[in-house]
């Protein structure tokens, strides 16, 4: 029983990070129909830049803030210089552009920062909390609380503010949004900034638990993508459900079946889901226009 609880705790912690990465995918996908394979690099940048900031003697909150702002700027640059010029390109080209961007960001990070593996100090100590026989790191609570806060904030943003509704309108129908006077170009920029910032924040939150290095981005991107697919591409609720589900399944597999195949779960699940529900759990039924 305490084993199960322990697995659930670690599953939810990792799942919260996957959910945030999946949310980043979702926001960009909705605004531009692009699946951004560089999404994992945002998480990596958030962690790595904070680490560099702390190493330079900055207090952690300030370093984290700088990391998030810088990553958001990089997200905007990605949109301006790589995605926007290739508008309307076929899916294969877009996949290669964003993977190229991801390799490029990794390469620059490795030169500008370093190739080492780093950890951030925990936000509020390392003394574990004991709950019903399971131990919970305080940092896990930060991760989960951070994810919940972001999801709530975004929900409010999309439903209660004019700008948020403009983003939703653009993702529903770009042309119609333009016709009613929405600056869709700004919506794109905003989406990339938002998505990058969310990724970076996830990176800051998780780095005290999972050490970061310039290489971690790609596997996070793949799992975040799997989580987003699992929930149904383009649906924030799906991203949350998919992320948590994936995290839980990974933790349970690692606990009860084999830790070697922990990383395989994401892809196994994705194949199974795609065979059964080709548009994901929350995906809408598509109508293809001929």
């Amino acid at each position: 029983m305490s084993d199960l609880l322990q697995f659930l705790v670690s599953g939810v912690t990792v799942g919260a990070v996957y959910a945030l990465v999946a949310l980043g995918f979702t926001i960009i996908y909705n605004a531009s129909d692009v699946v951004n394979f560089a999404q994992g690099e945002f998480v990596m940048l958030g962690g790595m830049i904070s680490v560099a900031g702390v190493a330079a003697g900055l207090p952690l909150p300030l370093a984290a803030l700088i990391a998030i702002a810088l990553t958001a700027a990089i997200g905007v640059a990605l949109n301006t210089f790589a995605i926007e010029p290739a508008r309307g390109a076929p899916v294969v080209s877009l996949i290669i552009i964003t993977i190229g961007a991801s390799i490029f960001i990794r390469g620059v990070t490795q030169i500008v920062l370093d190739k080492g593996t780093h950890r951030l100090p925990s936000f509020s100590g390392d003394d574990p909390i004991h709950v019903l026989g399971a131990t919970v790191l305080p940092q896990s609570l930060w991760v989960v609380a951070g994810a919940v806060a972001i999801f709530v904030a975004l929900w409010l943003f999309f439903t209660r503010t004019l700008t948020g509704r403009a983003v939703l309108a653009t993702s529903n129908n770009r042309l119609a949004a333009q016709l009613v006077g929405i600056n869709t170009r700004f919506v794109m920029t905003l989406s990339f900034a938002l998505s990058a910032a969310i990724g970076a924040l996830a990176g800051v939150l998780i780095t005290p638990i999972l050490p970061t290095s310039f290489e971690i981005g790609i596997s996070l991107a793949l799992k975040g993508f799997a989580a987003a697919m699992l929930g149904g591409m383009g649906n924030p609720k799906g991203a949350l459900a998919g992320g948590l589900l994936l995290g839980l399944m990974e933790a349970l597999t690692a606990g009860y079946i084999s830790s070697h195949y922990k990383d395989a779960v994401a892809f196994f699940v994705i194949l199974a889901v795609l065979f059964a529900f080709p548009r994901g759990l929350y995906g809408s039924n598509p109508v293809e226009r001929v």
């Binding site: 190229g100 390799i103 490029f104 960001i105 990794r106 390469g107």
Partner: peptide, 11 residues
Amino acid sequence: YEHVVLGLVMM
């Protein structure tokens, strides 16, 4: 610089 150049060429 291998990664940087490769990524740049792809994009």
